[in-house]
Amino acid sequence: MLKLPAIPKLIIERTVMATLLEDYGRSGDIASSYTLPAGQTAEACIVAREDGILCGLDYAEAAFRLSGGNVRWEKKSTDGDRVRKGDIIATVRGDAIEMLSSERVALNYLGHLSGISSYTDRFVENIRHTGAKMCCTRKTTPGLRLAEKYAVKCGGGANHRFGLDDAVLIKDNHIAVCGSLKDAVLSVRAQIGHLVSLEVEVDTLSQMREALDLGVGVILLDNFTIEELRQAVAVNEGAAKLEASGGVMIDNVKDIAETGVDYISSSKITMSAPAFDFGLDVRIIGAK
């Protein structure tokens, strides 16, 4: 069974509260307030309108709960579950005005995060027969990095760095400013702690050989062709972990994985995932 990281409740609530405040604007949901009587109770089902991988239940629950309407939430599925069109993933019951006021925020989180987990699953499925892992990048929606990287995990993918302080990734611009790949690596090694990992991005096989000579343990092969990736794997002989990145698409990820690289990273799984479609089917019950 997929082991998912737990996102602290405090972080979820802080993120969702900011989103609710954005949507409430200056005076709240005037449409619901002006059309529904105070004290009206409703119940609703959240329904999947397509097939995919579910993600974002805790964010949706927080949206309803933080709206202040004493909404009772019951989930029927779990993040990471494969859901089918028509599946009821959760039910909601409580104050009708508050429920409708928080509906869009709840469904936005579910649709966005389930879209990422479902899109990630498509990439993962294409490389499942290989030893490669599908990774996300730091190209995420501002303010939603933790949630989006969690969604990648729900889809069976792996996480790269969460931030600039996680690990050292020496990129082409670092090398350009520092003067050489060797100088950049030696400078980093002289200053980082013994628990901080180091990865170097290379553009050519020549640079890769230089990184290997320096004993770099993880090498990112940037925009290598399929043939160049095969050559890199052959030259490496298992000395370092190899990560392929740049130009990774759903239709070429299988070919990339079959070259023998260890990791494949792509911003596509977070930045280009289509939203997953959910609906909220509401039924009015009566006064509280």
Rank of each mutant, 00 (worst) to 15 (best):
A90I: 01
A167P: 00
L229S: 06
E74C: 06
M249I: 01
L113F: 05
A151K: 13
L164M: 09
A273W: 10
R145F: 06
V105Y: 07
D222E: 06
K75G: 03
G94A: 02
M1T: 10
A176I: 01
T120P: 04
L66Y: 08
Y119V: 10
T91K: 14
R161C: 05
I88P: 04
G143R: 06
G56A: 04
L10E: 15
V92S: 13
V218L: 08
S101Q: 13
D95I: 02
R72G: 06
V235R: 06
V83Q: 11
R122D: 09
M208H: 12
S67H: 09
N236H: 09
R122K: 12
I89E: 04
S102L: 07
I226S: 07
Q207K: 15
L146C: 09
A167K: 03
R84G: 00
Y109R: 10
Y24K: 12
T204W: 14
D203I: 07
V185F: 00
G157A: 13
I175D: 11
A60Q: 10
I226V: 10
S114R: 04
G111W: 09
C45P: 00
A147G: 02
D23S: 13
I175Y: 13
L36H: 12
A31Y: 13
W73S: 13
A62E: 07
E13G: 13
E61Y: 06
A167S: 14
V216M: 10
T204F: 15
M271K: 15
L214I: 01
I11V: 11
K254N: 11
L195G: 03
F64G: 09
G246E: 12
V261G: 02
A167Y: 06
V168S: 07
K139P: 06
H160F: 12
A62K: 09
T225L: 00
K139F: 13
G179P: 00
D29L: 11
N126E: 08
L181Q: 05
G279I: 04
E227A: 02
N223E: 08
L242M: 03
D251P: 05
S67T: 05
S77Y: 07
D281F: 10
F276E: 12
T204P: 11
D87P: 00
R72Q: 12
A90P: 00
Q231E: 10
T259P: 00
L66V: 01
D121Y: 14
M17N: 15
I53G: 04
K153Y: 07
R209W: 03
K288Y: 03
